[in-house]
Simulated assay, not measured.
Amino acid sequence: MSDETPLRVGFALFPDQTHLDLAGPWEVLTRLPGCECLLISTLPEAARSGSGGLTLLPTTLWAACPPLDLLCVPGGPGHLAAMEDPLLLDALRQHAASCRYVTAVCTGALVLAAAGLLAGYRATTHWMSLDRLARFGAEPVAGARVVHDRDRITGAGVTAGIDFALTLAALLRGEDVARRIQLQLEYCPAPPFDDGDPSRADPALVARARELGAPYRARMDEVDARAAARLASRG
Rank of each mutant, 00 (worst) to 15 (best):
R48Y: 01
E45Q: 00
H79M: 13
P67G: 08
I40V: 15
T42I: 06
D85V: 08
L71T: 14
W62S: 07
C35F: 10
G75M: 12
P33H: 10
A63H: 13
P58Y: 15
P74D: 09
L32R: 10
P33C: 15
V73F: 09
D69W: 13
A82F: 09
T59S: 15
G52T: 01
L32C: 15
S51I: 08
A47H: 05
S49V: 01
P67V: 12
C35Q: 12
V73P: 04
G53E: 00
S49H: 03
P67C: 08
P74Y: 10
L57N: 08
L56C: 01
A82W: 08
P77D: 05
D85Y: 05
D69H: 13
L56F: 04
T30C: 14
L43F: 00
P66E: 13
G76M: 07
E84A: 15
P67W: 12
E84L: 15
C35D: 06
L57F: 03
D69I: 05
R31L: 14
M83K: 04
P74W: 06
L68M: 12
L87F: 00
S49T: 07
G75A: 11
R48S: 09
T55S: 13
T60M: 07
P86V: 01
H79Q: 12
L70I: 15
G34M: 14
S49A: 15
T42N: 02
C72A: 12
G78I: 03
L80S: 03
L54D: 06
L39M: 04
L29Q: 01
R48L: 06
E84F: 01
L43M: 03
L38Q: 05
T55Q: 06
A46H: 05
S51A: 13
A64C: 08
A63I: 10
P44M: 05
C72T: 13
W62F: 09
L61W: 03
R31E: 13
A64L: 02
L61K: 02
L70S: 08
L71W: 13
D85E: 04
L61R: 10
L43W: 04
C37P: 12
D90T: 11
R48M: 14
A46F: 04
L68H: 07
T60H: 10
C65E: 08
G52K: 01
L61T: 11
E84K: 14
C37K: 06
P86H: 05
L70R: 14
E84M: 08
L89C: 14
R48N: 00
P67S: 14
R48K: 02
L54C: 09
A63D: 14
L88R: 00
T59K: 06
A82S: 12
L39D: 03
L68Q: 11
A47N: 00
G50T: 02
T60R: 15
G50C: 01
T59N: 03
V73R: 02
V28P: 04
L61A: 01
A81N: 07
A64F: 08
L88M: 06
S41V: 01
A63C: 07
V73A: 12
